[in-house]
Amino acid sequence: MLKLNRKSIIAATLLLAFLFLISVLIPTLRKPVLNVFNLPMAVFSFFRQELGGLIFFHSNLVQAQKLKSKVDLLRKQLNDRNELYLENTRLRSLLSFKETIPYKVIAARVIGRDPSNWSSAIIIDKGSSNGIKNGFVSVTFYGLVGRVIETSATASKIMLLNDSNLNVSAIVQRSRQEGLVCGSLGGSLIMKYLPKDSDIRKSDIILTSGLTNIYPKGLAVGMVVDIGQEFSSLTNYAIIRPAVDFSALEEVLVIIP
C-alpha cells in the first residue's frame, strides 16, 4: 500500500499549485515572450528559408518554371476569353440593333483598310454573292458608316463618311436645319452650306435627312462640336464629331434597300 506521509502530500500540493499558477499566468506571459522571441525567430526563419532555398534550389526552379508556364497559359486563356466576351458584347449590340431597324441588313466583318492616307475606306468580308451591291449604305449600332463603292463576289469596299469624296445630306435633329456633311480625312466631319442665321448649336445631333434616296432618313451622323463662318462670309459651317469611331470598326451592317 502506498504510504502517504505528510511531507510528500505538501510537496505534491505545492507542485500542483505552482503548475496551476503557471497555467493561469501563461496567457499574460504569452505576449511579452513572443515579443522577445520575435526577432530571433525571424532571423532563424530567414536562415531556414534561405538554407531551404539553397538545398531545394533545383526543385524550386523546376516548380517555378512549371508555374510560370501555367501562368502564361492561364493569362493567354484569360485574354482569349476577354476577347470573346468583347466580341460577344459587340455582336449582341449589333444583333439587337439589327432587330430594331426596319431595314433588311447584312452583317459583315472588317477585313482590311485603305492602304493610302488620301482616302478612307474599309474592306468587308461580304460581297455580291451575299447580295451586296454598289451604293448600299453601311451602318453600325452608333450610326452611319459609309457607302459601298465596289463589290467583288466575296468582299466589298466601303467608303467611310470621313473620306473627302463622300457627301451626305443631313439635318440638325433639334431645329431640322439642313446642310451637307463632308469628310475631312481626319477624325471630324464638316457640315457645309449652313445659312448665316441657321439654328445650330454645339452638342446638336446631326442625322441623315433622307432627301436623297441613297441614305435612309434618321441615321445618326454625329454631334456638333464647333461652329464657324466660311471664308466667303456667306455661309456657316459646323465641325461634327462622328457618331461612329471609324478607326475602331470591326463589324458593320450593310442595309439592303
Binding site: G112, P115, S119, I123, M159, D163, N165
Partner: peptide
C-alpha cells in the same frame, strides 16, 4: 497592289 486595296 496599292491601287487594288485603295478607293482612289
Amino acid at each position: 497592289l496599292k491601287d487594288i486595296f485603295s478607293v482612289n
